[in-house]
Each structure stands twice: as C-alpha cells, then as structure tokens.
C-alpha cells in the first residue's frame, strides 16, 4: 500500500499529516515514510534519525574533444539547451540536461559518453521501532528534483506500507511523488487559497487516475466552502484538524500530536483504515 500526501498549496500541513499518520500505525505494522519534498525536506526534524547516506546521480554528456568535429548536431538536437557547439569547443550546461541520452545517439563521431553528475542524496534510517524514514535532499542550486524523488521512492520499493510526503504545487516533483501511488491524501485549509490550490491538485489526481481523500487542517469551524467542494467532487473528508493553540504548540516544538495529545493516534489510524476501504483493500 502506497499513500502519497499532497496539497497544491504550501504550508497546509502535509508533513504534519504524513508524520502523524506514520507514527500512529507503527504499533500495528511496519511503516516506511518517504520525504519527497526534496527541496526542503523536514520530516527528519520530527524523528532525529541517524541515517545512512547515498548520493543521487544523474547522467550528463562528456565530449571527447579528440573525436568531436564540432559539427553541431548534438546542440541542434538538445531541446533543453544543455549543449552549445561553438567554433572551438562544446559547452555542456549540466543543470539544463534531462539525461535523455539523445546527444549520444545523434553524434556521428561517437564522441559523447555518459558521466555521473551528483544532484542530491537519499538518507535512510530507522528512527523508531517499526519506522523507516527515507529522505530525499536536492543539492542547493540543482533543479532535477524528480531524479532525487525517484531514488528516494526506489529505496522504499518492496516495503509493505509506504507513506510519501510530496512537495506543494502541481508540477513535475509532485507528479513524480504521486506516480504509482494507490491513494492520495490531499491536505487543505479552510481559506480561499487552500481551496483554489486544492482544486488544482484534485485535477492532477484525476488526470493520473489516483483515488483521493481530503484532510482539512487548521479548521476554524467554517469549512462550508471546502465541504461543499468535496461533496460536489465526490471526495471524502477523512479528517478535520482544528485550529488550536494546543496543537500548534506541540507542532512548533517539533513533536507529534499523535504522540503527545490523547485521541489523535486513533484518529490517524482511522484515516488509514478509511484509505484502505476506499482502495477496496481488506486489512
């Protein structure tokens, strides 16, 4: 079972939901939590892990200047602008390269080979009994977030229950995080901004054919607009987390409400049960 937590809007509480959901289940079964918000991963702040670290590489072209005739074919082929053929040399723009390998195919002199280029790292740890935490970190200044997400998810592959924390937005990193998930929890808040971006995220889940349910976070009790939207779109509201000082103070210390406040562990376990039911999976 693979559950991805997404939102559209930033700051709605994806990491809070992912971390609490994972914590609430570890007494029942092993859980693998994957932090795919690779530009600003922060799930490790809840758990203080001591991780094993593995670098993430992408492939970039390497030009053999003895073989290269400066014909220009690679530069004309590369739609990302990663290669510029000048009069006396070929420039490689590493950050523009999408590792498609096309330049190696079109080069008539076979002057281009692959070489590794580090874009980030994956940290793997077991911070609590029953909990595995895998966090993707994109290197500062790098842009290939999906590459790091792919490796973080690959590390979790084969584990029984995987909970994936995605980045906000609806672009490539989010789609990579959602890819091959069984269910998507969309976290929103009862503001016009939360609802607007929730609608965008729902559009992505529909395009991907991904089943989804909603968690309303920091609810001030006036959630009619979000609830009406969910009814209209036939999306179940799995949980409502109130806007309360008590919850905020636990969260702000880097703690989990499912650990520190009574009742929340059961509530999150109930969310998981509902996810299973909505996916048609028997426990």
């Amino acid at each position: 079972m693979k559950i991805v937590v997404a939102s559209g809007k930033g700051g709605t509480g994806k990491s809070t939901v992912a971390a609490n959901l994972a914590y609430s289940l570890i007494e029942l079964q092993s859980v693998t939590l994957v932090d795919c918000d690779v530009e600003v991963p922060n799930l490790h702040l809840f758990f203080n892990p001591e991780p094993a670290i593995k670098e993430v590489f992408t492939i970039i072209p390497k030009i053999d200047s003895d073989l290269c005739t400066l014909c220009g074919d690679c530069g004309r082929f590369c739609r990302y602008g990663a290669l510029t053929v000048l009069k006396d040399r070929v420039l490689v723009f590493e950050k523009m390269c999408h590792a498609c390998g096309g330049c190696m195919i079109v080069c008539p002199e076979k002057a281009i080979s692959e070489c590794n280029y580090a874009v980030g790292r994956v940290e793997d740890s077991n911070p609590l009994p029953g909990l595995r935490l895998i966090s993707g970190f994109l290197k500062e200044g790098e842009v290939l977030a999906p590459r790091v997400i792919k490796d973080a998810k690959a590390a979790a592959e084969g584990d029984g229950l995987i909970i994936i924390d995605s980045s906000p937005g609806i672009a490539c990193p989010v789609i990579e995080a959602m890819d091959e998930a069984d269910f998507c929890i969309l976290v929103t808040e009862s503001t016009p901004f939360g609802l607007h971006d929730l609608d965008l995220a729902v559009g992505v889940t529909k395009s991907l054919g991904l089943k989804a349910g909603i968690i309303i976070n920091r609810s001030d009790g006036s959630d009619e607009d979000v609830r009406n939207y969910c009814r209209k779109m036939d999306l179940p509201v799995l949980l409502t987390i109130p806007f309360s000082r008590e919850i905020a103070s636990v969260q702000n210390r880097g703690d989990l409400i499912s650990e520190k406040l009574p009742g929340w562990k059961e509530q999150f376990a109930g969310v998981y049960k509902e996810c299973l039911e909505l996916c048609g999976v028997d426990e």
Binding site: R76, C78, R79, Y80, G81, T84, L86, F93
Partner: peptide
C-alpha cells in the same frame, strides 16, 4: 516557441 534552453541554442545558431 520553445519551452526553455533557448539562450545557449541561439548562441550556437549565431556562432554558426
């Protein structure tokens, strides 16, 4: 009308 990477590609065209 390309989505990105037009700067370095234009340089190759003009240099050529």
């Amino acid at each position: 009308n390309e989505s990105g990477g037009v700067g370095p590609r234009a340089v190759q065209l003009i240099s050529g």
